[in-house]
Simulated scan of single mutants.
Amino acid sequence: MARRPFDLLRDTKVRAVIYQAATVLLVVLVAAWLADNTLTNLAKRGITAGFDFLARSARFPISESLLPYKPTDSFAWAFVVGLGNTLMLGAIIAVAATALGMVVALARRSANPLAAGVSTLFVEALRNTPLVVQLLFWYAAVTVGLPNVHAALDPAPGVHLSDRGLNLPALSLAHGELLALVAVLGVAAIVIATRVGRAASARSGRLHRYGLITAAAVAGGLMLIAILTGVGIEDPRLGRFNFVGGATLTPELVALLLGLILYSAAFIGEIIRGGIEAVGRGQWEAGRAMGLSDRQTLRLVIMPQALRVIIPPMTSQYINIVKNTTLALVVGYPEIASVTATTINQTGQALEGIVILMSVFLTLSLAASLFMNWYNRRVALVQR
C-alpha cells in the first residue's frame, strides 16, 4: 500500500532532510536580503561596489615591507605586500614563541625556586595584561631616549642607532630574484631527498643522508650563484631625513615582535607544561631505570607522548598569533590590516576591503588548522 504524505513526516530521516533544507533556504534568503539591502544603500550614496579599484595605482607609501613596493603600484600589490608582512610576522612569532614557551614550561617545573618563581611571574603578568597595553609599553621602551637621525649613535662601523631604528650593513645582490627562486627550488629538493633517504633507510637498514647531501649542494649552489652574479656589502648612509641603504630594524617591528612573542610564549608555555604534566610520573622513572638522563627522558620518552595533548590547543594558539598581528596598527607597522584601513580611506570601498581582510585571515587560519591537524594525526596513537 502506498504511503501517504503525512506518513512520510513520521520518518526521522525525512524530517531531518526537510529541516536541513529549510535551514539552508532561510540562510540563502537572509544572505540575499542583506546583499540587496547593502547594494541599495551603496547606490543611494553614490558608492559603486566591486573590486575594480584593485587595478588602480595605490598612491600611498608603505614604510617597510618584505616585498618591493612603490606608491605607483596597484592596490592589489599593496595587499600582497601587506600579506607578506603578516606572514613574516606570523612565522617569526610562532617559532620564537614556541622556543621561549618551552623554556618557560621547563622553568615552571624546575625544583629551583628562583627559576620557578620568575617563570610563574612571567606567565601571570603577561597573560593577565591586555596585549594592546603591552605593545604600547614595548614601543615606548624601545624608543625612549634615542636621538634623531642626525645625532645617531654609532656603536660599530656601519651601524647607526636612532629613533628611526637600527641601521645595519646588508648584503647587496645583483640578482636577488634568481637566488630566491633557486632557494625555493632547493628547499623542495631537500624535502624530496629527505623522504627518499628515509624510504631507502627503511628498505636497506642503513642510514642514507640524501637530505643532508642535497642541503649542502643547495647551499654551495647559492654561494656560487651569488659570487658569479655579484655580491657585496651595502652600508647605510645618512640622507636628508633618514638613513638609506643597508638593512633597518625599525622600532615598530621590534616593539611588535617583543610584545607578541612574549605574550604568545606565556600561553604556549602553559600548554607545553600541561602536556608534560599529563604524562605519568612512571614514565620518568622508567627512563631513569633505563639509564637515561632527565634530558634524554624528556626528549625520547615524555615529549612524544605529551605532543598528543599539546598539539590541539597549540593549533588554536597559532591561529591566535596570526589574528593578533592585526594589532600592529597600534604601533604603526604596515601589515595587511593597516594596508586595508589605508585602502578603505583612499577609495571608500569599505565593504570590499573588509571582505578581502576576512578572506585572508580565514584562509590563513584554515591553513594553520589543516597543517596542525595533519601533524596531530602523524603523532597520534595507532589503534589496532
Rank of each mutant, 00 (worst) to 15 (best):
T38S: 12
T326V: 14
R59D: 15
M314W: 08
L114D: 03
E335V: 11
L54S: 05
L351G: 03
L29F: 14
D52Y: 04
L249T: 05
P130Y: 02
A368L: 15
I321H: 05
N373A: 12
A115C: 11
Y210E: 11
A156P: 03
D294V: 09
Y69P: 06
L87K: 05
T38G: 04
E277K: 11
V254M: 14
A189K: 08
G197P: 12
V279G: 03
L135H: 07
A266Y: 01
V144K: 01
T347Y: 03
L298I: 03
V382G: 05
P130R: 00
A99G: 10
G282M: 06
A76D: 09
E352K: 02
R3D: 06
I225M: 09
A306H: 00
V182I: 15
A76T: 09
F53V: 03
A266M: 01
W284Q: 02
P155C: 03
D294W: 11
A151T: 14
N128W: 06
V30K: 09
V254G: 01
M290F: 13
A91G: 13
L364T: 02
V231R: 08
L249M: 14
L173G: 01
P304N: 00
E177S: 14
L327Y: 08
L8C: 01
I354N: 13
L253G: 07
Q383I: 13
E285V: 04
L249P: 06
G245H: 09
A289D: 08
G221H: 06
L26P: 02
S65D: 06
G186P: 02
V331L: 11
N320P: 10
I321V: 15
V339C: 08
L222W: 11
F51S: 08
P169N: 01
A58V: 08
R56K: 15
V27E: 06
V301R: 08
S316P: 08
A200F: 12
Q346L: 03
A215T: 04
I310H: 00
V301K: 11
V322S: 10
L173K: 04
V132S: 09
G232C: 05
T297Q: 03
L253K: 11
A380Y: 10
F51R: 11
P304R: 02
L362D: 03
L238W: 07
V244Y: 07
L300R: 09
L370Q: 11
N112T: 03
V330G: 04
M1L: 13
L329T: 15
A266W: 01
R198F: 12
R10F: 11
R378T: 09
G259I: 05
N242P: 08
G101Y: 01
A78R: 05
A96K: 07
W33P: 01
N376P: 04
L34P: 00
S201R: 07
I311A: 00
A111Y: 14
A115M: 13
D52T: 09
R308V: 01
V322R: 00
